[in-house]
Each structure stands twice: as structure tokens, then as C-alpha cells.
Design a binder for these strands. Structure first.
Lengths: 194, 194
DNA sequence: GTTCGCTGTGGTACTAAGTACCAAAAGGAA
DNA sequence: TTCCTTTTGGTACTTAGTACCACAGCGAAC
């Protein structure tokens, strides 16, 4: 059986995330202390910091899996190496849209999450950092596939730009995100995908 | 004469920035306390926080002026309203390049600054936030000029993408930044500028 | 030049994040 | 049971950031 220890850890982690989101939804990010989260999750304060490097990290708890999903999606697309920016962008389009679909799947969670970011500058910063990480990973996939570095770096950054633009235009509406991001790509590279 | 008070404040501010950069260059961002900066600048700790909202802000002390410079540059370009993304990007190209020139003017300072950002994730985050602010301002200028919102938002984000890509490709070399960013624009919109 | 008002200063005291360390609890294997 | 290893939670400490307050120094009016 899969280690009782592992299951316990998994459970503790979930309890912390639940407790944190409940409290953040009630009172916002700044007005909740780590001690309170720990109490509500029935763990020690020390334990909180063992699971999450800092208070902000808990907000992005379930985003770890997204990166792997995304790179997986991108890798699965085949091995045609793009030599120019527009072609590379067409290859990235589907992956970015898949990401949008994934994060808006749980609509309520998406809204709470976006509002937290909107209201808390540090969280917004952190979110952007994480997106940059994703972008650099995607850039790596392109390079592995034979796309020249200058092209890959630019294409990845532009794809991120489309995402940001779509997000801004969609506001907090989870049902509009995919459409707006797709429209942004369309404005850049035209109608055809991939 | 321009208020003795104003001059004193200006001087205090400069002393804080000098002290901070000297200490950061010696020991890195994390290993310097605000108290130390304040002591070296011969002001109280309280005063430090009166001039800079937090420890990170002092790193970006001289970037306030850049935003105004940039919007000024952009506004001065005249009143032709771009209706599509590529045209809008051509209009933004010069402004972004001007920004690049401005920040690499003092080469030593640029290198120290970039290295601080590289080594200190929180500073990198903050830097990206500031760039996003700039981007949104530029977006506003385009909109004011008659460019449709969806186009302006996207164009501004893409220009930011070109900047990021160029920066990544240039590494820490201040002499390459302008060239790399310009090359990024060229890959996207072709040779002609404006 | 003295007095009055205002702005800016720096000190004290407090809260909360994050770190280091340690002793004890609990799972896993013998 | 016994022993080893992982995980826990508590204590104590440092530092960022905030609130508050008494005081100093500039500027203006008399």
C-alpha cells in the first residue's frame, strides 16, 4: 500500500490549502496570519512552512501540475521544428488555450483566485513570475525541437503576451478567457491554428 | 530659492539610495538590513520607510522618471491611430528602444541592477510588475489615440514580450540590449520602423 | 529676532513572516 | 518489542513593516 506516511502528508497539505482559501475568501490575503491558517488546518505553524515556502505559495498550491501538463501537451504536438516566429506561435497556440481551459475548469476557484491576485500586488507579482517560468520551459521545448534560440525565446514571450492580453480583456469572467486569448492569437497569426 | 526643505529631502533620498546600493553590491540584497542602510545613510530607520514603501523600492529608485519619459516619447509620435496590431507595434518600437537606451546609459549601474534582479527572485518579481505598469500606461496612450482596445492591449503586451526576449538574449551585456530588442521587433514586424 | 505653525524626523513599541534548532511522536522494518 | 528514520510542533530569534508620539528645524508673520 502506498505508504501511510504519504497519504498523511497529502491529507495535511490539502487541509492547509482548504483552510487558507477559506480564510482568504473571508478576509483577504493580508488580514490572515499563517498562525491562523495553521490552527484551522490543525497543524503547527512550523509545519505550514515545511509544506509551503512562504505564505504566498499556498495560493498557487494546485498550479504545480499545470506546468507538467503544459509541457506534456506541447511535447506531444510532434517534432516539426519551427524556423520563424509566426510558425512557432501557431504551434504554441493550442498549448496556451489548453492552459486557459485547465485554469478556468473550476470557475468559482478561478474567480476567487483572480480576485486575490487583483487585490494583492505581491500575489500578482508571484503569479507573473510563475508564468515566466512556464514560458521559459516552453521555450526549452521549442529549442529541443530544433527551433533557433532567438526565435524560441521571442515566440514564447509573445505567446505569454497573448495570454496576458486575453486575460486583461476577459476581466474576471472565466467563460471568456479562452475566447479572448484565442482572439489575441488570431489578431497576431491569423485564423489557422497549429 | 527652491525650498531648503526640498533640497534636504532630495539629499536624504540620494544618501539612502547610495548607501543601499553600496551595501547591496557588497553583500547582496538579502544580507543587508534596513537598519544598516539607514545607519549608513545617517537617517533613522523610520525615515527610510518614509522615503521608500519597502526595502525593495529603493532598488528601483531612479526608475520613476522613466515612465514619464516613455509616455512622453510615445505621445510625441503624433496622432495616427493604428487599427491593427502590427501597425501599433511599429509605433511602439521606437519607444521601447528609447527605454532600452535610457536604462543602459549608465552601464555599471545597469549591470549591478540586473545582477541584483537575477539573484533575488522578489526583486525580479517587482521589476516585472513595474514593467507591466509601464505597459498598461502605453496601452492607454494607444487607446487615447484611437486604437481599438483589444488591439492596444495586445500590442502593448507584445511589445513587452519583445523587450523581455531581447533582455534574455542580451544577457547582462548593456551594449547588446538595444540590438537584441530591435532584432526581436524585426522578427515580428519586419524591417521598417514606425 | 521672536514667535507661531507646519513639516519632517527619529525613537519606541508592536505585529507578523520566516529561520534555526531540538525534543518528542509516529511510521516502517527487523 | 526494538530500533531507525521521517515528520512534527514548540521555542526562540531576526527582521520587515506599521502606529504613534514627542521634538527639531524651516518658513512666514509680526
Amino acid at each position: 500500500m502506498a505508504d501511510l506516511r504519504d497519504r498523511k502528508r497529502q491529507r495535511a497539505r490539502e487541509k492547509i490549502v482548504e483552510a487558507a482559501f477559506a480564510l482568504f475568501a473571508e478576509r483577504g490575503f493580508a488580514d490572515v496570519t499563517v498562525t491562523e491558517i495553521a490552527e484551522r488546518a490543525e497543524v503547527g505553524r512550523t509545519t505550514f512552512f515545511r509544506y509551503f515556502g512562504d505564505k504566498q505559495e499556498v495560493v498557487f498550491a494546485d498550479e504545480q501540475g499545470l506546468l507538467e501538463e503544459m509541457t506534456e501537451h506541447q511535447r506531444s504536438l510532434g517534432m516539426i521544428s519551427a524556423q520563424d516566429v509566426i510558425t512557432a506561435l501557431r504551434q504554441l497556440r493550442g498549448t496556451v488555450l489548453a492552459l486557459c481551459t485547465a485554469i478556468t475548469k473550476d470557475e468559482k476557484h478561478y474567480v476567487v483566485h483572480e480576485q486575490l491576485l487583483e487585490r494583492t500586488p505581491e500575489l500578482h507579482d508571484r503569479s507573473v513570475r510563475k508564468l515566466q517560468r512556464y514560458t521559459e520551459t516552453i521555450e526549452g521545448v521549442l529549442i529541443d525541437r530544433g527551433t533557433p534560440r532567438e526565435v524560441a525565446v521571442l515566440a514564447a514571450q509573445l505567446a505569454l503576451g497573448c495570454f496576458h492580453a486575453g486575460r486583461r480583456l476577459a476581466g474576471f469572467d472565466p467563460t471568456q478567457l479562452v475566447g479572448e486569448v484565442d482572439a489575441a492569437f488570431e489578431r497576431l497569426v491569423g485564423k489557422q491554428r497549429r
